[in-house]
Amino acid sequence: METSGVTATTAMTALEVEVATLIVGALQLEVQPQEIDPEAPLFGEGLGLDSIDALEMALAISRNYGFQLRSDDERNGRIFASLRALTAHIEKNRVG
């Protein structure tokens, strides 16, 4: 394996697994949802996502959770800091 070797040291919640599955599916990542470290950064070094991925994720999140991502969230709330942070943001903002 050439991945970072980081393994999830903390168990994921059910919603975290769901969001991880959504990300892996939407972005066609070469990892299993369970392999994502919930505390690791999604962009840059962690999962290595980029700004186009952010656009894809915004579409997937609006379809699945009924709310829209915004640049302000990204800057101030650091929602892409980790799977955990993104899941918390979704939990707080989801509609229905």
Binding site: S51, A54, L55, A58, L59, S62, Q68, L69, R70, S71, D72
Partner: peptide, 9 residues
């Protein structure tokens, strides 16, 4: 002046 990255913006 933006931002205009996400569709909602």
């Amino acid at each position: 002046s933006g931002p205009h990255f996400y569709p909602v913006e």
